[in-house]
Amino acid sequence: MKNLFKYFAILIAVASFKSASAQTKGSDFKGAEATKAHYKALYFVDDTASAKIKMTLRNINNALEDPRIKGKVEIELVAFAGGYTMFLKSNPYQETLLALQAKGVILAECENTIKERKIDKATLFDFIGYVPSGNGEIIIRGNEGWTIVHP
C-alpha cells in the first residue's frame, strides 16, 4: 500500500512539473502554421443585431490581414434570415462591404429570405450576389472543405 501511495505521489509530482513547464513555454506560442497554399472560409450572418454584423465584418477583415494566410484565403459572406439587413442600402455598411469585396470577398444574399420576407431587391445594395438558400450554401461549401464561421 505504501508503494502504491508513493507511485501516485510521483505521478502527481511529474504531472505538476509538466503542467508548470508547459505554462512557461506558453509565451513562445505563435499559433498554428499555415502550411496550405490556399484556404477557404464561409462566414454567415443570420441576425439583425448591428453589433453582430460589425463583429462579423471585422472578423473577416482580420482573417484577410492575418499574415499567415494573407493572400491565400478565399472568403464568402452569406446573409439569410435577419442577416439580410446587412445589405440594406439604408444601413451603414456599404463602405465596409465594398472594401471587403475589393479584397476578393464574395457577398451573397439568400433568395429564400428575399421571397419569404417580401424584400424588394431595390432596397439592397446592387453589388451583392444571390444564392438559392443560405443553408444550402453552408451545406455545399462545408462539403467542399470550406471552414464555416459564425461569429
Rank of each mutant, 00 (worst) to 15 (best):
K72Q: 09
K25T: 05
C110K: 05
N91Y: 12
L97I: 03
N135Q: 03
I140A: 13
Y84R: 13
V105Y: 05
G129W: 00
A108W: 00
A81R: 10
G82H: 05
G142Q: 04
Y43I: 09
S50T: 15
F17Y: 14
K6G: 03
K40R: 12
R141H: 11
T113H: 04
E109F: 05
L77C: 08
E74T: 14
L4E: 14
G142N: 06
V149M: 11
D66F: 03
E144W: 01
E65I: 05
N59R: 11
N135R: 06
C110Y: 05
I148Y: 00
W146C: 02
F29I: 13
N59F: 11
T123G: 03
Y39K: 00
F125G: 08
Y84A: 10
F127Q: 04
N143D: 00
S21M: 15
F5V: 13
K30S: 15
A9F: 03
V73L: 06
F8G: 15
E111P: 02
P151W: 07
E109N: 12
A22D: 15
G83A: 08
I106L: 13
L107F: 07
A51K: 13
N112E: 09
V149F: 06
V14Q: 08
E116G: 04
K121A: 02
T24Q: 15
T35V: 14
A51Q: 12
L4C: 11
I128A: 00
K36F: 08
R117A: 08
I148Q: 00
D66R: 03
L57D: 02
N3A: 10
W146R: 03
K30R: 15
R68C: 03
Y93A: 12
N3H: 04
A15V: 00
E33K: 12
G31S: 08
V73P: 03
Y39V: 01
K118G: 06
L124F: 03
N135Y: 04
F125I: 07
P151H: 08
K70N: 03
I75W: 02
K40W: 01
Y93F: 15
K25P: 05
T24C: 13
F8Q: 12
I53F: 14
S90K: 13
L64A: 09
G142H: 01
Y43G: 03
S50C: 13
I12D: 02
Y43L: 13
